[in-house]
Computed example of a mutant assay.
Amino acid sequence: MAEAERSETEAEPGRFEALRNRLRLLYHGRTPGAIRFQFAVLVVDLAIIAFFIASPILQDQRLFLWLDYSVALLLVLDITARGLASTDIRRWLKQPTVLVDLFILVTLLAPLWLVNLGFLRILRLWTIARSGFLWRPLRKKGLHEWEDVGHAVVNLVTFLFVVTGFIYTFFVRDGTGIDGYVDALYFTVTSVTTTGYGDIILPGVWGRLTSIAIMIVGITLFFRLAQAIVRPYKVSFPCPQCALQRHDPDAVHCKACGHLLKIPDDGE
């Protein structure tokens, strides 16, 4: 009897480790099955982001809570699976992207209490970009030079919709629906591009301060996007000698210290 119980106890950790290895292969592997799984996860994530963008104007609909809790369930499953797929769960939990995802999950589980923070859910787009799922198709096709541009676009789009949600929630809403949301997006874009038509303005001192912050951060992100498009392509490969991170794709020696480099052909 004791030997049977001991064998069952030993089998449990074995099954648990097998599950973690399986998830690790699916999330980080390069096999055709893993690629299909990652693509499916990416499609679901993009659908969730579309829901997050539309959430401010869907909150008064009857189906909103059902959709909200369904997305929360998907996010719980994804966070749990990613945690099990990590090699060090405690270290993984301390990553900024994981903390953002956990915050988003809290807003989904308490949508009525945290309704004014719902606009921050679009930060999920930033966490997906940081995970690398968005860029694997580019790497697979050898289009590494567009990854920096992609990161800049994601940062700009995330900022635009976070600010749009913030303005809609705190300055515009009051039952304005889709028209109010478009007005918030229009004001955000005109402020970020410093066009400043002046037909829509935010009232009061806080409105002016918000406009200033949008213009400063927005023009910085636009500059970052332009820089990513124009500047020559570099690969990320830390020099063993001086730790310089970026080099020309065909570099043989580090341009900072002259140390011999061994950059992989695929640039990864």
Rank of each mutant, 00 (worst) to 15 (best):
residue 177 G to E: 03
residue 184 A to W: 00
residue 137 P to D: 09
residue 161 F to W: 12
residue 206 W to D: 13
residue 190 T to G: 08
residue 133 F to C: 07
residue 137 P to A: 09
residue 187 F to M: 04
residue 167 I to Q: 01
residue 115 V to A: 10
residue 163 V to K: 04
residue 185 L to M: 10
residue 122 I to S: 06
residue 135 W to G: 13
residue 149 V to Y: 07
residue 154 V to I: 03
residue 124 R to W: 14
residue 207 G to Q: 02
residue 155 N to I: 11
residue 151 H to G: 14
residue 151 H to R: 14
residue 152 A to W: 08
residue 127 T to C: 14
residue 121 R to G: 02
residue 124 R to D: 11
residue 192 V to Q: 02
residue 120 L to R: 07
residue 144 H to M: 12
residue 202 L to Q: 02
residue 131 S to N: 07
residue 151 H to I: 14
residue 132 G to L: 04
residue 183 D to P: 07
residue 173 R to D: 13
residue 149 V to S: 11
residue 190 T to Y: 08
residue 116 N to D: 13
residue 116 N to H: 13
residue 152 A to N: 08
residue 143 L to G: 11
residue 185 L to A: 10
residue 198 G to K: 04
residue 112 L to H: 13
residue 128 I to W: 11
residue 197 Y to W: 14
residue 172 V to C: 00
residue 205 V to F: 14
residue 181 Y to V: 00
residue 150 G to Y: 01
residue 185 L to N: 04
residue 167 I to D: 00
residue 207 G to T: 06
residue 128 I to M: 15
residue 204 G to M: 06
residue 174 D to P: 06
residue 167 I to Y: 01
residue 152 A to D: 09
residue 194 T to N: 11
residue 176 T to Y: 07
residue 134 L to H: 05
residue 170 F to D: 04
residue 148 D to I: 09
residue 156 L to E: 06
residue 123 L to F: 06
residue 188 T to E: 01
residue 170 F to M: 06
residue 125 L to A: 11
residue 192 V to D: 08
residue 168 Y to L: 00
residue 184 A to P: 03
residue 196 G to F: 09
residue 191 S to L: 14
residue 207 G to R: 03
residue 136 R to C: 09
residue 147 E to N: 10
residue 193 T to D: 05
residue 112 L to C: 07
residue 119 F to M: 05
residue 181 Y to F: 09
residue 177 G to T: 01
residue 133 F to Q: 12
residue 117 L to Y: 11
residue 117 L to T: 09
residue 183 D to G: 10
residue 152 A to R: 08
residue 199 D to A: 10
residue 165 G to K: 04
residue 161 F to L: 12
residue 192 V to H: 06
residue 142 G to L: 11
residue 120 L to T: 10
residue 123 L to T: 04
residue 171 F to I: 02
residue 158 T to E: 01
residue 165 G to W: 00
residue 166 F to S: 07
residue 141 K to W: 15
residue 123 L to Q: 03
residue 184 A to F: 01
residue 189 V to H: 01
residue 206 W to K: 11
residue 131 S to G: 14
residue 197 Y to T: 15
residue 122 I to E: 08
residue 152 A to G: 09
residue 158 T to S: 02
residue 179 D to V: 15
residue 140 K to Y: 15
residue 172 V to R: 02
residue 118 G to S: 06
residue 182 V to L: 15
residue 111 P to M: 00
residue 150 G to V: 05
residue 180 G to K: 03
residue 168 Y to R: 01
residue 155 N to K: 14
residue 120 L to Y: 07
residue 155 N to P: 08
residue 178 I to T: 11
residue 134 L to P: 05
residue 129 A to C: 11
residue 130 R to P: 07
residue 141 K to M: 15
residue 167 I to W: 02
residue 181 Y to I: 03
residue 195 T to H: 08
residue 179 D to E: 15
residue 162 V to D: 10
residue 171 F to C: 00
residue 161 F to D: 06
residue 112 L to A: 12
residue 119 F to S: 05
residue 159 F to E: 03
residue 129 A to S: 15
residue 131 S to L: 09
residue 129 A to Y: 12
residue 178 I to F: 12
residue 167 I to M: 02
residue 116 N to K: 13
residue 171 F to H: 00
residue 129 A to D: 14
residue 112 L to V: 14
residue 165 G to L: 02
residue 147 E to I: 15
residue 202 L to P: 01
residue 150 G to A: 07
residue 125 L to M: 14
residue 170 F to V: 04
residue 172 V to F: 07
residue 182 V to Q: 10
residue 203 P to M: 08
